[in-house]
Every structure is written in C-alpha cells, then in structure tokens.
Design a protein around this nucleic acid. Structure first.
Lengths: 108, 108
DNA sequence: AATAATAATCGTAATATTGCGATATTAAAA
DNA sequence: TTTTAATATCGCAATATTACGATTATTATT
C-alpha cells in the first residue's frame, strides 16, 4: 500500500488535510515566512534564502500553489509569489472552531 | 534523497511543520473530529468509525500523539484518547499572526 | 489459570515525498 | 538575433509514509 484512501473521507476532511500537508515541511513554512517578511517576492530571492537548490525550491513553491496557500503572478521575466489569504483563513476558522469545542469538553 | 533537511531550519519552523504534517492526512483529521464529537474515546470506537484496519488506526493515533495533538490515558483495558488543546493553540496563534500580517500587505 | 477483548508492535509491500543535476522554457537585454 | 537571467520540468536515487496481516503485550472477565 502507501496510497491514502482519500475517497473514504469527507471533502472537508480531505481539504484540510491537503492544506495541512502542504504546510508539513519546514522549507515550505520558511517560504511562507519569507513571503510575509518581504511583502513581495521573486523565486530567485527565495533560492538565496533557503539551503536548497533551485529545482527543489521550485517544487516546494508548486506544492504551496497547488494547495492554494500562495499565488504567483508573472512580472517581467520573474514571478511574484505571494500569500493567498483565503486559504489561511480556512485554516484559522477550522482551528478556531476546534479550540472552541475543546474548551467546552470535559474528557481528560 | 527523500530526507528532509530539518537542521537547516529554525526550531519554530520545524515545530509548525511537524504539527501540520501530522494533520496532513484525512484519517487523522477524521480522528480529531471524532474525538471532538464524542468528547471521550476509546481506540476501538475509532476503528469502527474509520475505513481502516486496527493497526493502521493505531499508527495514525501514534503520530497524532507524537505531534502533541492528542494525549492518551489508560482507562481499564482500553485507552482514552483526547485532544491536546495546547498544541492546537500553537497553530491557531501562528495562523492568526500570519493573517494579521497578510492583511497589512500590499503585494499581489 | 484460561479466555476474551483491546491496543501496540513487527514486518513488509505499495506508493509518495524529497532533493538535485541536467535540461527545457521563457522573456528581457545586449 | 545571440546571450543572459529566471523558473519550470524531467528523471532518478534515497528515504518516508501508508496500509495491513500476523503477532505480541496487557488487562478484564470467567
């Protein structure tokens, strides 16, 4: 095996898992933090910032983009990547709801 | 390759990535949601709830526990797993901060 | 003590991810 | 138009994850 049984779970469960998975790598967290810091970005900057080769960074950017966490605009012969607020809001609301529910619980 | 270069990133980046990674699977999201719903839990219940075999569920529970997202208390011959609020709060605060920063940005 | 029930661990096959060198692709600059 | 710069894609090796059958603790019940 090795393949996730995606079709057995709800659409929302898969959605949250996909977003979380995309954030499940320190390089991708570092990319997000760098984009926040510079408030505008070109990929080569990120390559300089990270301890990873250009193809690797490109791959991480692609995964963040697929998960909807960043968006890329072509800008001359470079590409401007930025945070996609929408998707982070989905996470924030989801975890907010979890914490609300937990604080009302009386289990352990 | 295949091994993540953990040592090149900050401790916080690794921490957030580890937590996010643990949530990066729909089965583990489903487990969290089930624990929220029943407000007390035994592993066999989860096995009945999920489309996965007992060893697989046990493995997912272990990963959630390692990431600090749930904690398990022995309760008779069964085990009571529950949400660990602390770790969810780390996430909530982290994403809250990101969203605050993003809304002040003017990039794309 | 023997049995049953619950959950963890082991071993292993299938698949996915990570990382990067080599090679495209694309668009500005000379 | 050739060259240069910035990114993306391909292909592959190393490693990690997912899933589960078989087995092993561990504890309750009989």
């Amino acid at each position: 095996m090795g393949a996730t049984k995606t079709d057995h779970f709800t659409e929302q469960q898969n959605q949250i898992a996909t977003i979380a998975k995309a954030l499940g790598h320190p390089a991708r967290i570092a990319i997000i933090e760098y984009l926040l810091k510079v408030d505008a970005c070109i990929c080569s900057d990120i390559v300089d910032e990270l301890p990873l080769a250009q193809p690797t960074v490109s791959q991480h950017l692609k995964e963040l983009k697929n998960a909807g966490l960043i968006k890329g605009n072509i800008e001359g012969n470079a590409i401007c990547y930025c945070i996609d607020e929408k998707t982070f809001n989905i996470l924030k609301e989801y975890f907010g709801k979890i914490i609300l529910t937990v604080t009302n619980q009386k289990c352990c």
